[in-house]
Simulated scan of single mutants.
Amino acid sequence: MSAFIMRGVDAHTLTGQLRRGRGLGLRRALSDGGAEAVEAVYGCCVDDPRDDRSTEERSWYLLRLARALRLDSAPIAAHLLAPVAETDEDDCRIGLAADVLAGLARDGDPRALQALRAYVVEGRYWSRALDAMWEEGGDAMCEGLAPAVLARADDDELRFHVEIDDGPWSAWAAGEPRIRALLDAESPRSGGGGAWWPLRELPDARLMALVEADGPAARTQAMRELGRRGDPVLLDLAEDPAMRNVAGGVPGLWAVLDRLGAGALDRARGWAASDDPDLAGQGVRVLAEHGTAQDVPALLADLTAMAEQREWCGAETPARGLGRLGAAEAVPTLRFLWKETTHSYARGDYLAGLLGAAGAGAAELLVEAADDCEERVREYTSGTAQS
């Protein structure tokens, strides 16, 4: 399977477009269906091309291609079941393979289902395969696997995976006392949004005392209340080095600064030009959400810098702002970002920017967007996308 490993592939090639999850790549692959398309789809299944597996999507995209190209599941199954060294981490190498195999198993491919079941019994990251099977086929696809899971996992490992409202656990609980006991012991997860005392009743001085002296959780709650009141003291807190955590930021600051709206603009314009990366980032966020035409040069400079550095995530914020302001001068850079980004999640923001900055000139991208790997990009073609 080593022939499938391909990193840093040019964005103009079919392989590069498929690894980026672009709709253009999918359309090209379905149009020619040649060896490059087949090899690239196999490659994506066994060598996860995502920059950020916590946000980027590929499963729907790759499964659609695998079905349309009538791919043999055997190479993907062989990759899933290939032995790995004890020191190797293979959770990243099996995620998309499991998802695609589960989709093919739902279509009736017996080898795909057999490989998944074997991996649940023998594989290191068995729960990842089990989740994929449950998502595609529910209890029918996972039937009979409970004894194998219980045989290989002690209660501590099971406790990590068992969830009340997800996976086969509730379905298995009736016949498996160990699972039933773990489900009974699991407490509902906290929403995390409520305060521990009536912050709305506290005076500003008491809130500031919480901000300055209490732990990070209480500090965030107090800052939220200050934001709700529209207190400009938040602008001072943003500039206070003592408020920074070890990573150099102020947790939760952006969410509360946003409550100040245009009231933060004057200070944010100075921040955006700051040498302090965190403060500059906060400034760009304010300008993107609340700035006016006079802020287009600053946003465009930030977008250009992010594009030159290939900081795909960093470019998302100025892209949205420039689209909101209808900045036509940003279109060439936004088009570059759309084509080149290896962080597929960012395309939703680049598309929003292009539709705002180019208007009808970006209409052809909506055709491509209908086949993008990211649901948030596809939503623009149905009018359901949220800005």
Rank of each mutant, 00 (worst) to 15 (best):
A3K: 02
T381S: 09
P216T: 11
E122M: 04
E329T: 14
G323N: 10
D214V: 00
D258K: 12
Q221D: 14
D278R: 10
M1P: 11
R70L: 04
T304M: 04
A68Q: 12
L351C: 04
L207I: 07
A78T: 02
L69G: 02
R335W: 03
A369K: 09
A3T: 04
D88C: 03
E201D: 15
L210D: 04
I76M: 15
A307F: 03
T15F: 01
G23M: 04
R20L: 00
S127F: 14
C45Q: 00
V41F: 00
Q114Y: 01
A29H: 05
A74W: 07
A181E: 15
G270L: 11
R376N: 07
E316I: 09
E364T: 07
V233E: 05
V46I: 03
D240I: 03
Q17E: 09
R189Q: 12
E212K: 11
A242M: 06
Q114H: 10
M223A: 04
G281T: 11
R378P: 02
G34V: 03
V211R: 08
P49D: 00
G323H: 09
G193R: 12
R124L: 08
E308C: 03
T384M: 10
A217V: 13
I76Q: 09
W169C: 06
A77L: 01
D275W: 01
A315Y: 11
G95S: 14
S31R: 13
L24T: 13
A40N: 02
D266W: 03
L63G: 01
P75F: 10
D109R: 05
G249E: 15
V377A: 07
L365P: 09
M141D: 13
T341M: 03
G230M: 00
G248N: 00
P318C: 03
R259F: 00
I179E: 07
E329P: 02
A217L: 12
E379H: 09
V84F: 06
A11W: 09
G252R: 08
R347Y: 06
E186Y: 07
V233I: 11
P297Y: 14
R128D: 12
R70W: 04
E86C: 01
T15D: 15
G323V: 10
A319L: 06
L253G: 04
A115N: 02
P203R: 10
L150F: 13
A298G: 05
E308P: 01
P177S: 10
D10L: 08
G191P: 02
I94E: 09
V100C: 04
L116W: 06
E36F: 06
G249H: 13
R7C: 02
A185T: 03
C45N: 01
L351V: 05
V84C: 13
D166M: 05
A293S: 12
P110Y: 01
E379G: 02
V100M: 11
G25S: 05
L299T: 08
